[in-house]
Amino acid sequence: MAIIQHGILEATKHTDLDLNATAEELASSAKTIYGMEIDNTNNSVDVFVKCYDTNNASPPTVGTTVPDMIIRVGAGKIRSVSSTRGTVSGGNVTPAAGFAFGTGLYMACVTAGGTAGTTGPTEDVKATVYTN
């Protein structure tokens, strides 16, 4: 069996054990998210994790600031998201992994999707985020 190695990705692991309606800064400078795992097993309702491309110079207002990524996580579920984003030209694919956040990274978790929603889940949600 041939093994093809496409590349080695070094990542920094960020763990947030109490993600809720209060936005928390995971990074104060540009970061690329390679993947994340969100644990909503302690809640009986769906939650919405929102990621904001900003830092502590201009922290987001949860419920008002437009999020740059929204991920719904089902009640009692764990949701994993990983991305390999790249470019395609003439049938050639150039991988460029991750979601690029050019300023920084704030995250929050509420019980409503879209931009609005300021109510956090009953129990905090756990998030593990892998970035550069």
Binding site: M69, S83, T87, G113
Partner: peptide, 29 residues
């Protein structure tokens, strides 16, 4: 209507398209 998911798709560079690829086979949306 509030979207349940929102994912950024990067801009292309004039020659190549920006792309987003997500795999949810283990836990579908």
């Amino acid at each position: 209507t509030a979207p349940d998911f929102s994912f950024p798709i990067p801009a292309g560079d004039g020659t190549e398209y920006g792309a987003l690829h997500l795999d949810f086979h283990d836990e579908p949306l």
